[in-house]
Design a protein around this nucleic acid. Structure first.
Lengths: 233, 233
DNA sequence: CGTGCCGTTGAAGGTTCTCAACCGTGGTGG
DNA sequence: CCACCACGGTTGAGAACCTTCAACGGCACG
């Protein structure tokens, strides 16, 4: 599969229609195509703003504060677009959770390339807005929720993105480790593990091996996620 | 001052050039112009995605989790653009920190209006990206920093946005209360107050009344903000 | 079959929260 | 003019939640 073909789903998703082949070719010329193995980190040029398209696989965007403390800012799955700024208060890296296929674009050149196509530009804006809103929700969780609520939020959120509904239950295959979950929720692995244990014994979920999770009571879980209640007064 | 005139600085900032007057007129027709007094909240229609332009004053974007817990997601000052999604996991409101002048746009119609002007569209994208990157930095702070580092980060960040350099010192007039700071940093007002006291006695800053802060040692403060160190190995 | 990593569970400790009292300021009304 | 009150900020003591430190179990891989 060549770069242009890899790009097609991206463009289709962005503008909601089959893309003009000229644009696809133009973008393909800009893109650096990279395959990253599980645990590897994407070769990012931190001197310039970037967009990264996740063609296949899944990634985590990791920020490092001082003293080696790490915070996972977001998880991404196939089809997602990630924005990585040139330099920031914290140093960012993009790591693969499984064998992953990426297209890396310099932001300024991508802007120029799609400037003539408002539909694509608007689509990109929409993606960035979604990322912003997810990040805000994460900030609420990190600032104002306890460990149980954070883990419940995480599971509910992942269920929406990569879960498979089966009757009233949802099954999940989590590509990330407990450490990743902890680093994403601002907790320690031990606390995450304890929360999983409590939820297991409460009958809210069942786990199989490291990755497989079955949410037995998604509604209960959602109710304990600390989201604003859709009240019936 | 009419709406079109209020819009001009926005458009100039977005595309880096004097705006075509036709576009300004078109956008002005979309905008709902609102003045909000100190402490008041903007009349947002939560049924649709919105952009809000802060023409004058300053605001806080507040998210409510369940049980009345509030997290301030961002502060905004004159010239900023805020994106407010239709509905989210948490309920958002935009509150004025001082008498504030706003222009409220329905997102979809704004998209349509500026679709023909790639420079403006790209400028808007740039603003949203900046917001995303700030939100990520906030997430790092909320997830992985202690109280002292959070307050130091806050002061350093505010100094960049609304501070006045005077020799090696920086003076600030904070429009937000201690409660707002606490709600922004995921702490309690008591903890914020204690951190201010410690920094005062350490000689890092001096306060006058509620709002006025003078950073005596901005570099020391920045060093204690827990950002990644720019090391010389 | 040994090794190493990841996940789980337990006990002790620390940072922040909660509850409470006090202080200073600004506005109001007698 | 001053007393009073309301509100925001400061300071202190105890409690709660999460972290830290430690040990153990299990699965994958060489």
């Amino acid at each position: 599969m060549n770069k242009t073909e890899t790009l097609e789903p991206l463009l289709t998703a962005l503008c909601g229609a089959p893309p003009p082949s000229q644009l696809a070719g133009h973008l393909a010329a800009l893109a650096q195509e990279v395959r990253v193995s599980r645990g590897g980190s994407a070769p990012l040029d931190h001197r310039r703003d970037l967009f990264v398209y996740i063609a296949q696989g899944s990634t985590k965007l990791v920020a490092s504060a001082s003293a080696g403390r790490e915070q996972i800012v977001a998880f991404h799955f196939a089809g997602d677009i990630v924005s990585v700024p040139a330099h920031s208060l914290h140093s960012y890296s993009l790591n693969a959770l499984e064998p992953t296929h990426l297209l890396i674009f310099p932001a300024s050149e991508m802007h120029a390339a799609i400037a003539g196509n408002p539909a694509v530009l608007t689509g990109l804006l929409q993606r960035v807005l979604t990322a912003l809103h997810r990040c805000r929700d994460k900030a609420v969780g990190l600032g104002r929720k306890n460990a149980g609520e954070r883990v419940a939020s995480f599971l509910v959120g992942m269920a929406e993105r990569i879960g498979h509904a089966e009757g009233g239950e949802i099954t999940l295959d989590l590509p990330m480790s407990r450490r990743d979950i902890a680093d994403s929720l601002g907790l320690t692995i031990e606390t995450v593990s304890r929360q999983f244990s409590e939820m297991r014994s409460a009958g809210w979920l069942r786990t199989q091996g490291r990755a497989h999770v079955r949410l037995l009571q998604p509604a209960t879980l959602a109710a304990h996620a600390g989201h604003v209640e859709l009240r019936s007064p």
